[in-house]
Design a protein around this nucleic acid. Structure first.
Lengths: 255, 255
DNA sequence: GAATGTTATTCTGTATATTGAATGACAGAC
DNA sequence: GTCTGTCATTCAATATACAGAATAACATTC
């Protein structure tokens, strides 16, 4: 977690990198933290850390408890998130398709945004009301190469195997596929336009992902998640439907 | 909007104040903006603004479109918001009560957090499924003194009339109450423990608010919103229920 | 096609944000 | 009560982030 130092050095506005790191740390911990604890964790100088926290407090992004002298995330972050959700075209465009897919196939469906090889973020979701649903939350972050989405990104992202290998090795699966097997699955995803993870990421759970293109790059993806056994017979139809939805969405995104 | 300059000067980490201002501006606009437009709006030097934007881009808080050279909010803000929602005790504790009230009385109910005399933020919400619902969004910001919540804060916040008057004058209502009338309503809220806004803030809409106490201060409030005419007969019961829910919540918050 | 208004971006000296040590405040141990 | 560890906070020196001018890139207008 000391790559914070790198990001700070590289920037012409290091205070911002520090601030973001602090916010993320506070978010990750959940519990309120003291100045020193934060500074230690992020490799910051305590005094600098204090000034960062004070600035963030002034912006209502972190809350300060004068009694315990502890800092925690505050509700200002919500305001920003709401503003973003309001203007993000992908969420709006994807939601109807996600709802339809979730209803028709009884799966949980997600819309995700791809940032880079290290993370993707869930930005839209729909759950089928009936039967047990597999739950995630909007805003969740995942490593980009994991599960079906990972195969999508590997297939269409235009990255070299040298870039992919170390990150692939760092992933955590219930049932990790071998590198060569995985490459074969990636190749298959590239051909068919849809990627499938059959119980590797989560045992017994099948994940299907189709890329959404924007400006010639796979910037987002549609994902369907269901119990493997229950999905088996429907799988071809679901793959087709997901691919179709992703395709029309790609057209809309570039318009 | 040039109070940004003040906030910047006052801080020992001015870049953070600038960054927050940029994020808020981008959120407010919704549409992507160019470096210069942002700088002009906030009274920043273009070059500085550029560095701020680059730093924020590196943190995935703003997105940069290389073709149009425009900047917009990015999904990183969502991750922070989710982390905050996860650990905010008030939202968790309030949600069941809000759901129950919304169901029993057919109203929209909100949980809000009070920051200061200038803003409160909606952090939890429940809508009654049946009939037309009055809609707000989680993360919305309002001036603190408006509507029923405003009377709560005025009644219990321990502010002097001198502090209140100028802010009261700046409020926007559908049917603005006079200062003396308003003070009388505030006094009544103080006595009864519940504040009511009967069509002043929004014509035809009744808003009821009860304070939630934490550490001896009204830090949050529960709010119910309904069509005035439809609510009339239920009003006493609703006031009682809201007051009760706020009371038990206050106990839980301090625990 | 030259001119003029934009824009984003690079460059450099200086005001200042950051640092690391020093101070003060507090709690628990003995 | 004194000591010892940890905490937040202040302070003065300096490395550096920032303001402002200069440049480059790009439309739009004449």
């Amino acid at each position: 977690m000391t790559d914070v130092a790198d990001t700070v050095k590289a920037s012409k506005a290091p205070a911002i990198a520090r601030a973001a790191a602090v916010l993320r740390l506070l978010g990750k911990r959940g519990a309120p933290m003291g100045v020193q604890a934060i500074a230690r964790e992020l490799g910051l100088v305590p005094s600098t850390c204090l000034y960062v926290l004070r600035a963030l407090t002034a912006e209502n992004l972190v809350a300060f408890d004068p009694d315990t002298k502890r800092y925690a995330l505050d509700a200002g972050v919500l305001t920003l998130a709401r503003a973003w959700l309001r203007k993000d075209r992908f969420s709006d465009l994807a939601q109807p398709a996600l709802d339809r897919l979730a209803r028709d196939f009884g799966t949980t469906t997600l819309g995700v945004q791809v940032f880079d090889l290290d993370h993707i973020i869930v930005t839209a979701m729909s759950q089928s009301g009936h039967n047990f649903q597999l739950s995630t939350q909007v805003g969740s972050r995942f490593p980009a190469l994991v599960s079906a989405t990972g195969r999508c990104i590997a297939a269409f992202g235009g990255h070299t195997p040298e870039e992919l290998k170390p990150r692939f090795d760092a992933l955590r699966w219930d049932d990790p596929p071998g590198w060569d097997d995985w490459l074969a699955q990636v190749a298959q995803a590239r051909e068919s336009g849809v990627a499938v993870d059959d119980g590797h990421y989560l045992a017994g759970v099948t994940v299907i992902a189709a890329p959404v293109w924007k400006g010639g790059r796979p910037s987002h993806a549609l994902v369907a998640i269901g119990i493997g056994a229950a999905l088996r017979s429907e799988l071809p139809r679901l793959k087709q439907a997901l691919k179709g939805a992703a395709h029309t969405l790609s057209d809309q995104m570039d318009a």
